[in-house]
Amino acid sequence: MASTHSTFKNALIAILATFPSILFYISFLHHHNNEDHSLWNWCNQHPFLLANVMFFLNVNVLFWFIALLQSSLHWMIGLYWMVIPVMLLHFYANHPMAQYNQLRSWIVTILTWIWSIRMLHSYLRRENWQLGVKQDWRYIDMSHQYGKNWWWISFFAIYISQQVLQMGICLPLHVVHSVDKPLNLLDFIATVICIAGVTIAFYADTQLRIFISKNQKLKQLGQPLVPILDKGLWCYSRHPNYFGEQMWWWGLALFGWNLGHSYIFIGAVLNSMCLGYVTMLVEENMVRENYRANAYNLYQKNTSMWIPWLIKSTSNDKGKKN
């Protein structure tokens, strides 16, 4: 009962948290033609900078402050990682300076909503449909590392860094709504890549969830745990969910590159670098656990890290199968 009450309270906080930005943006759209108001004129001329200012004040500052009030429980930034791209999409599409091909905008809008819904479903399923109960294990590790200084370091390590990364990978959403050119073959290719990425990530996460659930049942029954997941997509890649996620962002970047902005891939590159670091941390944790260390070492040797590829060898031993 207490858990349900906490989830309801945190859901309400999460819903209300972005109201300052939403209300401000609605007010701006209503008054943007006011030539006597320098603030509205600035907002009208600088959509990307305005998005960054709103992100800094509403997400970085407000979310960080809420986390401090909740005993440094930084859960909202993880939840909104899956929501902010949708918000940015509609921010750019409705901005007075927007100009774009309507069909391309609709395609990117539908793809972004599909990605967001898939991510939210995976996140809530992983959290057992609860909000604010726990936070990312990486934040927990960093809190132990920085100790009493974590309260202020977290602002830069979690929030400022997230702004740089998220505004970078969402740059294609801005470009799509600032250039009006007819659709071509590259738009079709980008669409296929995005759909493939979301599909791969969805099935990989579902297979991982089933694996974890089965191991939890085995643990409750006091039976030996299955050391590694090497079935389905995980037979061809050690991190097919990360691969699918990267495909999505690289496909999205292709939309922007197709519109003449070669720098647009910087966000996808940064995201791949971050996922590379996360992959390293995940694999370090995997080999720390004695019951799976040997099996996972063999799995590493015989299975591609990201890009799905044919297994290098087979064995009847589950620990050696790849």
Rank of each mutant, 00 (worst) to 15 (best):
Y139K: 02
L252K: 06
S122I: 00
W257V: 00
H239R: 10
I107W: 00
H31S: 11
F24H: 01
I22V: 14
G168V: 06
I228C: 12
Q246S: 12
M280I: 00
F19D: 03
F55E: 07
W106Y: 13
C170R: 08
Y277P: 04
I140T: 15
H74N: 07
T199G: 11
S237C: 02
F8Q: 14
R238T: 05
V175H: 01
Y242N: 06
L39G: 04
T191M: 01
C194L: 04
N128A: 15
K320I: 06
Y296N: 07
K219Q: 15
Q45M: 01
G78S: 14
Q223W: 08
N294I: 05
V269Q: 06
L73N: 15
I15F: 14
L73C: 15
G168H: 03
N302A: 05
A201S: 05
I193C: 08
L57S: 03
I114V: 14
K321I: 07
H5V: 13
H74K: 04
D317F: 01
W64N: 08
F188M: 11
V287K: 09
H239C: 09
L252Y: 09
L186R: 11
P47D: 01
L120E: 09
F265P: 04
I84C: 03
V192F: 11
R125P: 09
I66M: 12
L120R: 06
S105W: 11
T112F: 03
I160N: 04
I307L: 02
V179I: 08
S122P: 00
F91H: 05
R125T: 14
E289H: 07
S304R: 01
Q163L: 08
F211V: 07
T199S: 09
A14T: 00
I114K: 12
S3E: 12
A14F: 02
L23N: 03
I114H: 06
N94T: 08
Y242M: 04
K320R: 12
K181A: 13
T112Y: 03
M247V: 03
W306N: 10
Y159I: 07
S143V: 07
C43K: 00
L208S: 07
G132D: 00
D36L: 03
Q166N: 14
Y159V: 11
D36A: 04
Y100S: 13
A196F: 10
M167R: 02
N290G: 14
A2P: 08
M54L: 15
L79C: 04
Y146F: 15
N290R: 13
S178G: 12
I189F: 10
